[in-house]
Structures are given as structure tokens and as C-alpha cells.
Write a protein that binds this DNA or RNA. Structure first.
Length: 189
DNA sequence: CCCTGATTCGC
DNA sequence: GCGAATCAGG
């Protein structure tokens, strides 16, 4: 496998989306995460997009406007047919299954966003925007199983972000899920 | 042990 | 340029 234009493009896209190297490698196929990381470095896009927080005091400022006006229709015949079967992602094509969730099902954890670290909450709200919004069937041992929304509505999904090694939730949700049992000190009768 | 990215270095 | 091996974490 060589780094064709398309593959590099996908690499950039996914890396930009915050996908992990292994995920990207898996998606691309034919490469290992090491290859992906190596390529990422060679492409010079090692650091990820830091939208809000984490303002690193970088001594080196890279304004690099990169006035790339190079549009490439690229009719160029590839030296290699690349892959005859693109099939970027074989999605399970879920049959339009209707909401079967009646209602009023016990909403999991969903701690009464109340006594939780304001920071943790803010963080959750942050990452929930980036959530994969997975359905129940799409959850794996590696996806955050934090439920969002009302199960009785279409607005229900699971976080789906990469879990914190070993735990059922992503880092942010672990933060609100596993409170150091306190806040509600048992009232000393 | 699972995972992550970073770096090195022979190819 | 490439990526396996290795390193350094979480």
C-alpha cells in the first residue's frame, strides 16, 4: 500500500477529526498505526486541532497561511489502479427500525447534573458535541456508553467516543460517572 | 493489559 | 519516503 492522494486525504481528514492513528489505519487498511503516525509526522501535522482549551505557549508560531491555490483535478492516470473496490466503509446498513423504546425506561446513570464538578460538566458538554452518536447496537467495549438524550425520542444516542482504557466511558464521562462518592455524605442520623 | 502518540533508524 | 521497532506515557 502506498500513500495515494486519496489515502493521504482521508488520513488528514480523520486525523483532523481527532481519530486515533489506529482507527485511521484500520479505516485505510493495509497500514499499521505506526505507518499512519509516521506519515502524520512527515506531513507535518503532528499536533491536533485545539479548538478551545489547551493554549500551548508555542515558542514557534506557525501562521503559515499556506496560500495553496493548487487545485488538482488530477485526471492523471494513476500508476496504480489503487483499489478497485473502494468501499470506504461497509456500514451495516441498519434497516429503518422504528423507535421501539416505549418510554420511561430507566435512564441509566445520568447523575443529576447537580453536584458534579462544574468543570467535568463543562467538559462533557464540550465533548458531547463531538460524540459519535452511536446507537445501542453500535456500541463496543471500546466505545463510551454514556447515554445522551431521552430514550423515548429520536434524540437519543450514546457518546461513542473512545473509552478510557478499561472503563465503560470516555474520559470526560468517566469524570462525571465516577464521582468519589461523596457529595452526599450519609446523613449521620 | 488495553490503549495512545513520538521517535528512531534501516530500508 | 516509508514503517517496524521501540519508547514513553495513560
Amino acid at each position: 500500500m502506498s500513500w495515494t492522494d486519496e489515502r493521504v486525504e482521508l488520513l488528514k481528514k480523520m486525523w483532523g477529526e481527532g481519530q486515533s492513528a489506529s482507527q485511521i489505519a484500520k479505516e485505510l487498511g493495509g497500514v499499521t498505526r505506526n505507518a499512519v503516525i509516521g506519515k502524520v509526522h512527515r506531513l507535518g501535522l503532528s499536533n491536533r486541532a485545539t479548538g478551545a482549551s489547551s493554549a500551548k505557549a508555542e515558542p514557534k508560531e506557525k501562521p503559515a497561511p499556506a496560500p495553496k491555490a493548487a487545485a488538482k483535478p488530477k485526471p492523471a492516470p494513476k500508476t496504480e489502479p489503487a483499489r478497485p473496490a473502494p468501499a470506504p466503509a461497509a456500514k451495516p446498513a441498519i434497516p429503518a427500525r422504528r423507535q421501539i423504546i416505549p418510554a420511561g425506561q430507566p435512564l441509566p446513570p445520568q447523575p443529576s447534573a447537580n453536584e458534579i464538578s462544574p468543570e467535568a460538566l463543562a467538559k462533557v458538554n464540550e465533548i458531547e458535541k463531538k460524540a459519535k452518536k452511536l446507537t445501542l447496537m453500535e456500541l463496543t467495549e471500546k466505545t463510551c456508553k454514556w447515554p445522551v438524550g431521552d430514550p423515548a425520542t429520536e434524540d437519543f444516542w450514546f457518546c461513542g467516543l473512545p473509552v478510557e482504557a478499561g472503563k465503560p466511558y470516555c474520559e470526560a464521562h468517566v469524570g462525571v460517572a465516577f464521582q468519589p462518592m461523596s457529595s452526599r455524605r450519609d446523613r449521620r442520623r
